[in-house]
Nucleic acid binder design. Structure first.
Length: 556
RNA sequence: GGCGCAUUGGUCAAGCGGUUAAGACGUCGCCCUCUCACGGCGGAAUCUGGGGUUCGAUUCCCCAAUGCGCUACCA
């Protein structure tokens, strides 16, 4: 009868390296004490959402604040799910949000000496370790067809026992105990029949909770985890020769010397499999960080739902096209990632977010609902910290990619910077810029291309509008300072029977037609087309005298 | 169905056996020598439920409910 060694040799007759050689090729990293090695392993489905970014930040921060290494690995072991250009999309999206990798796949090929960083290129490596498991009798080839597996599942359901392939369900598991079966396996392999390689689990199937052996695994987010023994003979190499996630994870993260595996909590149930795989290969476990997932409100009602791949407003591209500044998204994500971040920010308003010491212990273990109001609020204060010229440049880049129709806004960049800076350097700076599309609307009245009068005069002053504007134009002196300018408005207001102060009007509404606010609103609408805007005087200084006079003139 | 994770105001959350149960966003009201924004002050609003343990539970244990996830030759 065939020995384990002979079986392994039969299945993988020629492999260029031994496991030991790989260990030497990818030695322990020489890094300072406490340095963390993390990785992001997206599968190239071409869709990245906020949740992926959220996880990526954890990886990035953990590695870089400890002097470690952060690398990008493409996990493309699912051939059915590959999407054209997805890798490029992933790389550019992450770069846009300032996620910097030290190693891994880039648009110009791999960087780093622990590659290849694309799983589909690592077939030989996986096979080498699968072969080792085969040699040690810790794995076996399984010829069960889809039909047979379905039949097994049905039977298991009927018997109300755990579904899956494990001891007692695949006859191929015990090929070495049956001469005839061993012969069959050998000839089927020689005939080139398709098969998968399964782990021969050492766990006891369906043991009670008390009987199950448990392993203590450290999770940096959730503390010590008590992980039960796995007993499933999971597939480690698929029929195609490609490994499953489970096997690729274990082999890669060991060989790439990952110290911290950050992944979503949906992986928690498969942790027993990974623990057994690491043990079977004789390797130490990394520290796991199972993060809670970002959620959203479902279309239906108020129910919580996980961010599904198809939620367009959870897609990174959505925020990009709306023109949310990457720093704002980063800032928002950090506030939900670490609950003490906002407090830190309040104390360090001008510091770079990189200076904040991020800890996994401060991460919530329950999923947060995405909150657009909060993002908008965070974005306002983030943009307030951004220099106007820089903001202008960024808006231009955004426009050329997502909104070319705003091209006219960027003809005079200094002018644009002045507009953006409106009221931002006051003692109590304005914070009303949120995202690019909103900003375009916010400043639209500065440009004749987008200017239109949408609001109507306030009731209190509508009948006097002509008179107000005529007097305004007559008294207008572009060189007036803010105080002088406003005194003239007051004058016009009182001359026409309006209260000079809103308070007076409120006290004695019967004595006045309205108050100075109504009068200035008339001017505001003539100039800006809307009743709401920043300081009129400051706007006029930026607009220039000519435009002020012509806008007023149009309304006479 | 089985298993896992989670559960403090509308949202994000602090809390880690004794607190008037922080703070932020949102919301409401007031104030801030023109609107808005900013800012200030104030209000409404929370420990999912039931059992334990304890002198005392939001905090510890159990059960239930609810939500989410896993249960693939997907990740």
């Amino acid at each position: 009868m065939l020995s384990n060694r002979e079986l392994a040799q039969l299945i993988y007759p020629s492999l260029p390296h031994t496991p030991e050689e790989y260990e030497e090729m990818y030695p322990e990293r020489k890094l300072p004490e406490g340095a963390r090695v993390t990785r992001l392993g997206p599968s190239p489905t071409g869709f990245i959402h906020l949740g992926n970014l959220y996880g990526a930040f954890v990886d990035e921060r953990l590695a870089h604040q400890s002097g470690g290494v952060f690398f990008l690995r493409i996990e493309d072991t699912d051939d059915k799910r590959f999407v054209e250009n997805a890798v490029e999309t992933i790389i550019s999206s992450l770069a846009f949000f300032d996620i910097r990798f030290d190693e891994g796949v880039t648009e110009n090929g791999d960087i780093g000496s622990y590659g290849d960083y694309t799983q589909s290129h690592r077939g030989e490596i996986y096979r080498t370790f699968a072969r080792r498991l085969l040699e040690k009798g810790m794995a076996y080839p399984c010829f069960l067809s889809e039909k047979e597996i379905t039949a097994i599942r049905e039977k298991q359901e009927a018997e109300k026992t755990s579904p899956g392939i494990y001891a007692g369900w695949s006859k191929y598991r015990d090929w070495d105990k049956d001469e005839a079966l061993a012969t069959e396996v050998e000839s089927r392999i020689r005939a080139g029949e398709p098969f998968v390689i399964r782990l021969k689990s050492r766990g006891v199937p369906n043991a009670s909770a008390e009987e199950t052996a448990r392993h203590t695994v450290t999770d940096a987010v959730r503390g010590e985890l008590s992980v039960p023994d796995n007993f499933q003979d999971v597939v480690i190499i698929k029929q195609t020769g490609i490994p499953t996630y489970h096997f690729a994870h274990v082999v890669d993260d060991h060989l790439m010397r990952t110290t911290h595996v950050i992944r979503g909590e949906e992986w928690l149930p498969s942790l027993p499999i990974h623990v057994e795989l690491f043990e079977a290969l004789g390797w130490d476990l990394p520290v796991y960080c199972h993060t809670a997932q970002l959620m959203k409100i479902g279309e239906d009602g108020n129910k919580r739902k996980l961010s599904k791949r198809k939620d367009p407003e959870l897609s990174l591209d959505y925020y990009r096209s709306q023109g949310y500044h990457p720093a704002a998204v980063r800032e928002y994500l950090l506030t939900i990632l670490n609950s003490n971040y906002e407090e830190w920010r309040a104390e360090n308003p001008d510091a770079s977010s990189d200076e904040f010491v991020f800890t996994t212990e401060k991460m919530s273990s329950s999923g947060a609902l995405f909150d657009l109001d909060k993002l908008n609020d965070v974005s306002k204060s983030t943009l307030l910290r951004t220099d106007a010229h820089e903001l202008a440049k960024w808006l231009k880049a955004w426009s050329s990619e997502f909104a070319p129709e705003y091209g006219y806004v960027f003809e005079d960049m200094d002018h644009l910077a002045d507009i953006l800076d409106l009221g931002r350097h006051d003692a109590r700076p304005r914070a009303d810029l949120v995202y690019a599309r909103q900003i375009m609307d916010h400043i639209s009245y500065f440009f004749d291309e987008s200017f239109s009068r949408t609001d109507s005069y306030p009731e209190e002053a509508a009948s006097d509008a002509g008179e107000i504007l005529t007097r305004y134009l007559e008294s207008y002196d572009h060189s007036d300072d803010n105080g002088t300018w406003f005194d003239k408005i007051r004058q016009i207001a009182t001359d026409l029977g309006y209260a000079a102060k809103p308070k007076d009007y409120k006290k004695h509404p019967e004595e006045y037609k309205g108050h100075v606010g109504h009068v200035s609103t008339v001017i505001r609408i003539a100039l800006m087309g809307r009743a709401v805007s920043p300081d009129v005087w400051a706007i006029q200084q930026i607009m220039g005298e000519e435009k002020v006079r012509s806008r007023i003139g149009e309304c006479l």
